[in-house]
Design a protein around this nucleic acid. Sequence first.
DNA 1: TCTTAGCACTCCTGCCGATAGAGTGCTAAT
DNA 2: ATTAGCACTCTATCGGCAGGAGTGCTAAGA
Lengths: 348, 348
Amino acid sequence: MTQEATDRQRRILARLVTEYIEQGEPVSSAWLAEHSDLGLSPATVRNILARLEEQGYVHQPHTSAGRVPTDSGYRLYVDGLLGSRKRVRLLPDLEARLRRAGTVGDLMENASQEISRASHHVGFALAPAGTAIRLRHIDFVNLEAGRVLVIVVSTGGQITHKVIEPPAPCDDVVLTQAANYINAEFAGLTLHEVQTAIVGRMREERLLYDALISRALQLAQSGLTEHAPGDTLYVQGASLLIEHVAGGSADREQTLQTLRALFRMIEEKHRLVALISRYLEAQGITVVIGSENFVADLHPFSVVASTFTAADETGTVGVIGPTRMRYQKAITVVDGVSQMVSRVLEGH
Amino acid sequence: MTQEATDRQRRILARLVTEYIEQGEPVSSAWLAEHSDLGLSPATVRNILARLEEQGYVHQPHTSAGRVPTDSGYRLYVDGLLGSRKRVRLLPDLEARLRRAGTVGDLMENASQEISRASHHVGFALAPAGTAIRLRHIDFVNLEAGRVLVIVVSTGGQITHKVIEPPAPCDDVVLTQAANYINAEFAGLTLHEVQTAIVGRMREERLLYDALISRALQLAQSGLTEHAPGDTLYVQGASLLIEHVAGGSADREQTLQTLRALFRMIEEKHRLVALISRYLEAQGITVVIGSENFVADLHPFSVVASTFTAADETGTVGVIGPTRMRYQKAITVVDGVSQMVSRVLEGH
DNA sequence: TCTTAGCACTCCTGCCGATAGAGTGCTAAT
DNA sequence: ATTAGCACTCTATCGGCAGGAGTGCTAAGA
């Protein structure tokens, strides 16, 4: 930890990590000597491994076993990956699939599904806080008992709706005219901008003499607040973790407890949301490894997350997997999906 | 199977089943002799058990183990329960909690959660199918690239939407007029009725000369197909199954495979929906035990489901648990929640 | 000083056999 | 028809033992 890791140490560690990720079993000095292209003997590798162990990067389950990376070991490895990150190639068919989503919710669901499929772990997606949508079209529909249905279509083609209860009932003609007014005046702005614009207009007293405009502004005002699909978390692929975690540990009781903790967490989404929200502050890709997680239940797992922005708001997509996950792949996938989601939301 | 089970056999079996459900371990003749109030010796009980085994109701894991119920054994036991079902006591606080739900979706989510909490297994709820929805209002909104958003509002205030791709692009005026036409002509009919009416009108050749009407009919036709909001399934409590299944089987690999199959099923909800829809045909409570399930992945599990009706539509709530579940409790809970959901839906 | 061959050591894993215990099926007596 | 007694079978557990994997250390070589 304290000492600096030499280049050779890093290379050995990287090889060890990739192999352990692949096979899931402790890696021996002999294997490393053979497969690292440094031309070293097992004995030398053993010396290096002893050093790495002193520094806390690797660990051996018992005296006569090979080495396994510690969380710090993964950290060093992942930092190396992040430093030399290659440009992500965006898959056109994936983009088409995402673009087919009807609502922001669908989009998030597809994104998390996609991440899960590609990474073979748990994918998640958290929509932008809610104002990250540009208004294409608003629509008011009369329901019974004076209630009004507000439908908002975004430039990306996503739909949200909400039922409001205006102070006084409106007839259909008024609603149509109000919608036309709002559409003509505010289309193309983000919901947040629309709201501030509305507040601004409401201040202009002369406009309030026009009953229609006043009505329209009122309706839009109450219709646009809390138009947030943002606090719903979309999680996909939990079943995939079962076999993966199973392969890792030999202790059955431990395994099941771990699994249960994770599934519980996935079910009580608000806990997970609170956790994931922390990643929103970071720009770009965040990798949290094992015990770096704030929540103890997640200590056996790693999280790779990426924020994306759309209309000045940020959301998150990512993957949760065992610490022994393919970070390279995960980072690529999460980064790619994140960028695509952003583009789809922006409406190109 | 072929022979009729005597009353004494049934009582022994019932005792055996309840004990096995409670403890999860094979039940011995000695235990049954002591705890069944028939005043029999272990030897006699052994004879009875031998008979039950011939008939396929119980099974012994190995020569010197106690007996375990088979699926047929559970079946006989459960049929006994269903025959003498007692009136369910409705809990007022539960009803209040359910009534707090804002939408049908929320209600279903609460119901499944409630079932899961009370039964300690997986709770599910399937909203009424929605084919009986009546059209209040239809709306067409132009999206980019010639695609059109169709929004359908039901008389109950429920909203569904769908994106279609008409053969030729339509401008906003056409869409508005088309919507007005459909609304004027068909409001108040069920979606199904609307569709047949449309087909009827399309046959009347003179109408086809009117380009607008023809357009409107086309749009509505493609917009209304597959407009079923009822196919979302709400599932809660999957994490609870982990420890339960774990306790049952000793074979770790088997256990994990079983779990994985179930979780996968829960994630691919459409499969589960297809399965659960079959219960809709049955009135009241359905109990499906182990291998009675049509889908092999569910063979290690039992399902207790109850249909409920509201406004002539039927939905389902239920629980999925190991075959070794507390049927008595499950039946009571499912029945109770089912009735409450019905009342809440009707009461609105 | 760094590397490496050789070797002793540690620890895991799988296997064998013996033992204790649980629960049954059968038989003969009531 | 019931039941006490008994032999039998199968499981679960434990200790010991051999095989193997991989290491740490030491001493020799570059």
